[in-house]
Design a protein around this nucleic acid. Structure first.
Lengths: 108, 108
DNA sequence: CCCATATACTTCGCCTGTCAAGGTATATTT
DNA sequence: AAATATACCTTGACAGGCGAAGTATATGGG
């Protein structure tokens, strides 16, 4: 991974919610998708990913259910809740704002 | 403060280095400056600020010396080192890159 | 048939950065 | 005399990221 964790910290949840905005999915696939989207430049560590799922479900932003695959490993699917959609939009706005702020602060 | 810390986390060091790029300064003033530049939207907590100074000095990116004020509270001035200047540029590039990455990942 | 690999999820414990809270000291203003 | 502003410092708690290890199923190669 070429990007420092602290750069992504605070965005992990948003990244997950963003993925679930386009439909239910499961951990392994979401991580693959992240890796593909960034050309392999970034991927969430498994521990980070699953910790985030617990957190987001705890907060009511996502819900989960076991898939009914009759082959391969079992999958736990995640679904974004209405509260999660709202939170996602809030996070996006916060990103826009903080992006400008950081730009101001780190360029002299 | 209206911006979540986790959004700024990972940029604290860069923010400090950026300030020192335009000359030596001291903690209190740097924090004031941050607050002013962002229209009061953001300021580093003192503990965070001084922790960062220790870290940056430890890493050789800044050096410090006591000011010779003959009035008012004493001030510890910080100076960016050549290694710090290099690090600052590296951080700026990383920001450009991660900015694009995050943008890609959080917009569906 | 066995072993490596890919898929898929989970838990434990460490590390690091943030920050609330409290403390010290000096100078100015009320 | 007390409040406020300037200026710095330390301690301990907390949260998120993540290395490491484990569990379980399916598939392809030798």
């Amino acid at each position: 991974m070429s990007i420092a964790s602290d750069m992504i910290r605070g965005h992990t949840d948003t990244i997950i919610l963003a993925h679930l905005m386009s439909g239910d999915s499961y951990g392994y696939k979401i991580n693959r998708s992240i890796s593909e989207k960034t050309g392999g430049q970034y991927e969430l560590k498994e521990a980070t990913l699953y910790t985030a799922f617990r957190r987001l479900e705890q907060l009511g932003f996502i819900s989960s259910y076991w898939g009914d695959e009759n082959t391969g490993a079992r999958r736990r699917y995640y679904s974004i809740t209405p509260a999660g959609v709202q939170e996602y939009h809030r996070m996006l706005e916060e990103w826009e704002q903080s992006q400008r702020l950081i730009q101001t602060l780190i360029t002299s």
